[in-house]
Design a protein around this nucleic acid. Structure first.
Lengths: 324, 324
DNA sequence: TTGAAAGCGCTAACAG
DNA sequence: CTGTTAGCGCTTTCAA
């Protein structure tokens, strides 16, 4: 029942001009006489003409579309990134295609290959692909990485080094002498990065650090992590991210451990929920909307650098003085 | 520096066949001799050929792409819907374009018009458009609505009527005789629907109901709602959604009101966080992943009905007996 | 400033 | 089963 959509040719005929002129009137208005243009626009409006984005992209090669790939759309961590990217893309007249790779490197690689010609570029957030695959993708398309660095590929990451130092000093100032890191996905660049930063900062302050895991970076993963942490003797745990940290909070409560009097808990990211869980979570907050915005910006400007965005510690109720 | 991508013509020449045969080998493999096909595929592989989705869509009119529009990507309510839609779309070989309309009817209408030819159909979740605009969109594209009903347009909604009855009966069984509804966005179909269901159920049980608001359906909106609710005399509040409910929880605590002994709080949706806020929230849980899945399914099958998905009450710590 | 014409990469009849 | 031939709707030289 759907009627055929009018094309530039319909508009051209009706307006008494050539199709190419109609084309110009929309894609390059300044190369058309003001009056002709107004006339064309009026006719187009009357006919209900809408440019076909696909037909427009085919000869020009410009799709005005950007692909944003991430490992898990339901992870609150990515909300800010999505929103920042969305806003920046829209502001520049681009459409954002969002794709959930469900933590699978294969799915990610496959989609990057499949969509390569359908987008002007990709933003890969927390990419699970190998460096080789990322380089290959960057050879075919414009690519910007978020929270991962690969030599030669532009990226924007959230600072872990300095932020983690703040975390460790905060714990030290509360009297903690040892801490346990609850690690996240092995393929995660942030996970490796945070652990390295933790070792270094703790080492410098003479604190003992151990690592357990990996755990699924989810609330339910936190239960396993808490169980594993109990009996490790540490007075503080630093979780790979807030999801994991919130999960440990619940499990500690279930098992009768008091946070922070029995054990302190720190997370990363300051996601939705970190401020209203019980107790509210001490965490390293990251400027995620900025992150998404900057990535799109870099992509559209053809930037080449490695941007590092600062994070900052938010102290809430889950950390406290060592007692006993 | 980016090299020209090989096309079917390159593959055809290299394989010694016609371009149309290469085309068939990929889009309609069974209409090509097995050996020719294998040969073509091998050559294509060697050349690194990838079909161009745009070029493919132009003559056929099929884009294998679906647009999912929603008012706020950062609202946890939509996570499940996104994931369900994503999965179902991918399973059917479709790409999902996700678009955040930021609560603006204009942005929504504009994007529907702009992307009309670039997708095979739209899923409009919690659409903020007028019925007229939705009908217009449905005249041009395949459209499925989520959480909104418009005569003649297929939709999938989450049941409020029966679910709300459960909420009211739960409160009644705890001794509550009056409740206050904290309303959400005026343009929201669910908001109207929930309020209507609440009045009816409460009326039947002889409970007093009042409505205040509208409030922004966010955690910060909950603070305003809590302040407004205090002094209303109701022993229970039912919030438009969990975000709002969680916000009231915090505000009540700040003002020294105990939940549930001073006041009971109920939300809608059972979003991420509803189980670990303090106290954990009693809420009407909705099958959101199902919802997203069903909507895509309906769209792809060209279904015409109005699907209603059941919700169910989850009782947690935020509701209790009336005291005093 | 405008028109004519040649594609963009692919699909889809229509022959053979 | 395969090749030939038209386009899909638009952009983009190249002339006029």
């Amino acid at each position: 029942m759907r009627q055929r959509m009018p094309t530039i040719h319909d508009v051209a005929r009706e307006a008494g001009v050539a199709a190419s002129t109609v084309s110009r009137a929309f894609s390059n208005p300044r190369r058309v006489n003001v009056h002709t243009r107004q006339h064309i626009v009026a006719v187009a409006e009357r006919l209900g003409y809408r440019p076909n984005p696909l037909a427009r992209a085919l000869p020009s090669g410009r799709t005005t579309t950007i692909g944003l790939l991430l490992p898990d759309v339901t992870n609150p961590f990515f909300f800010g990134i999505i929103r920042g990217a969305e806003r920046q893309a829209n502001a520049a007249g681009y459409t954002l295609i969002l794709m959930d790779t469900e933590e699978s490197p294969e799915v990610e690689t496959h989609n990057v290959e499949r969509l390569g010609r359908a987008v002007d570029g990709f933003v890969l957030a927390s990419s699970r692909q190998s460096e080789a695959d990322i380089r290959a993708a960057a050879g075919r398309n414009a690519v910007v990485l978020i929270n991962k660095q690969v030599a030669g590929v532009p990226s924007v990451v959230i600072d872990n080094t300095e932020g983690t130092r703040q975390v460790v000093e905060h714990l030290a100032s509360l009297g903690h002498r040892s801490l346990t890191y609850l690690s996240g996905p092995p393929a995660s660049w942030s996970n490796a990065n945070r652990w390295a930063a933790l070792r270094e900062s703790a080492g410098r302050l003479g604190m003992r650090v151990t690592r357990i895991g990996p755990f699924s970076p989810t609330v339910s993963g936190g239960a396993a992590a808490a169980d594993a942490a109990i009996g490790r003797g540490a007075t503080a745990v630093v979780a790979f991210n807030d999801m994991l940290a919130i999960g440990t909070l619940r499990r500690f409560a279930e098992r009768g451990w008091r946070v922070p009097s029995d054990i302190s808990v720190v997370g990363y990211d300051d996601i939705f929920g970190a401020d209203f869980c019980s107790p509210p979570l001490t965490t390293l907050a990251s400027p995620r909307e900025d992150c998404g915005r900057t990535a799109i910006d870099l992509l559209l400007r053809g930037g080449r650098g490695e941007v590092v965005l600062p994070s900052h510690l938010v102290v809430r109720g889950s950390t406290g003085f060592v007692t006993g």
